[in-house]
Nucleic acid binder design. Structure first.
Length: 415
DNA sequence: TCTGGGGTCCTAGGACCC
DNA sequence: TCTGGGGTCCTAGGACCC
């Protein structure tokens, strides 16, 4: 039996959710109908466009550009701050509605999901009709619109669903339909062809998805290594991974990074930033129930170039101060001659903390563990600023840094 | 025009072992 | 003491996604 897969994608998710929320709370304007964006805080140099309305798009405003630049394109632009708590509630409402149509729902990101409709035809009827019902129910009951792609695998469902927005159902039910709908598109729009791969393909005279699909695999392998034949398969619609419901992928690492509100030109100041990042990384690590062996530090210089440094440590840990100590050491080893704009800390090579191998040299320290646990529970109950280390007083820095949507983990690959 | 923050996977080169 | 080859581990960087 042929598979039937749906991909559901919320149109301009953050912006639609904010708009729907405001309308439900008595607002008279719909943000989706005026030039508007969701943006970060410019004061602390986080001012980029995270989502845009369709009217804003008509001014040439793009996701990821600075709010400064967006305002130059459209002086009357309405800028709304992010509200992750709201997005999480909308996400949950969406997923719960999807489960009315099939028990096999795979969350792909905060605003995308796959649904396996294969076994549901006898129960819920024709797939394309069901996709329309699904889309309309979301619009009518939840107040925002989605695009639905219907096809026989995840890749094609996702690709076709993005064709025309908003509030549309698109289908690819045969190879002929794939050739007609996807092959004329610019190759850059193929999943997994990004900023770096596209120019390499242009040099090989490959400009559309169809060009790539028909290109010589050996030529591609010569210029792009194993990546070449891989994306050629994608261009041919070859993909057969299952919709994996609730299968949260195993966590590989935990990291937080930040752009500092001001450039930092001395290691002592930079260490405070590292500490605030380590506080969050450590807390998340303990909540997830892991210790880590590998610590890496990323420095972003004022000129926007980056550098990373990592080391494997002899014993795994989940102590904030131990991670911090290692991170400081790594940072000092690559301290650059130009000021820093941003920093990141990441831990990986995780081991479950209940089967931890105790090191002779790093004895298990019950006191430190209790301190971490006490701080975690206070911060989770009363907020990250409820307890802070004194070095952050008057520092202009947050005592804990890292924006994590509570309990939300993304699936990073469809395949 | 001065660009966030969260991820995963792959690759190349060097170190080191036998 | 100028030299082989294979395997694995470690590290930095780059690619992609949302």
């Amino acid at each position: 039996m042929d598979k039937v897969i749906m991909h559901i994608d919320v149109n301009s998710a953050y912006l639609s959710w904010e708009a729907a929320y405001r309308l439900q709370h008595g607002a008279s304007v719909d943000l989706r109908k005026i030039p508007s964006v969701i943006g970060g805080d410019e004061e602390s140099r986080h001012g980029i466009v995270l989502a845009k309305s369709i009217p804003a798009k008509k001014y040439g405003i793009q996701t990821g550009e600075t709010l400064f630049s967006a305002r130059q394109k459209c002086p009357g632009l309405v800028v709304v701050p992010v509200n992750y708590h709201l997005y999480m509630m909308c996400h949950n409402a969406l997923i719960s509605l999807l489960k009315d149509f099939s028990p096999l729902v795979q969350v792909y990101s905060i605003d995308e999901a796959f649904l396996d409709y294969t076994g549901m035809k006898v129960v819920c009827g024709d797939p394309v009709e069901a996709a329309h019902r699904l889309k309309d129910r979301i619009r009518n009951e939840l107040g925002f619109t989605v695009n639905v792609g219907v096809s026989y695998n995840k890749l094609l469902a996702k690709m076709v669903g993005e064709l025309k927005k908003p509030d549309k159902v698109h289908t690819i039910l045969s190879r002929e339909e794939m050739i007609r709908k996807l092959w004329p598109l610019p190759v850059r729009e193929l999943f997994m062809v990004g900023r770096a791969t596209a120019p390499k393909l242009y040099r090989l005279n490959i400009f559309t998805i169809g060009d790539l699909a028909r290109a010589d695999p050996e030529l591609l392998r010569f210029h792009l290594k194993s990546w070449g034949p891989y994306i050629r398969d994608l261009a041919n619609g070859i993909e057969n991974s299952p919709v994996a419901p609730d299968a949260m992928p195993p966590i590989k690492g935990i990291g937080n990074s930040t752009t500092i509100p001001f450039d930092v030109d001395n290691p002592e100041e930079a260490k405070k930033v590292l500490l605030s990042l380590c506080e969050m990384v450590g807390m998340r690590l303990r909540q997830a129930g892991f210790c880590a062996r590998l610590v890496s530090v990323y420095l972003r210089r004022a000129d926007l170039t980056g550098q990373s440094h990592q080391r494997k440590f002899p014993a795994a840990t989940d102590h904030t101060m131990k991670i911090y100590q290692w991170a400081c050491q790594l940072m000092e080893e690559i301290w650059p001659s130009v000021p820093l704009r941003g920093m990141g800390v990441r831990v990986s090579e995780l081991v479950p903390n209940h089967c931890l191998q105790l090191s002779f040299f790093e004895p298990y320290n019950e006191k430190k563990r209790r301190l971490d646990e006490a701080l975690d529970s206070l911060r989770m109950r009363f907020g990250p600023k409820s307890v802070m280390r004194s070095c952050f007083l008057q520092s202009g820095l947050a005592p804990v840094t890292g924006g994590v949507i509570e309990n939300f983990q993304m699936m990073s690959s469809i395949l």
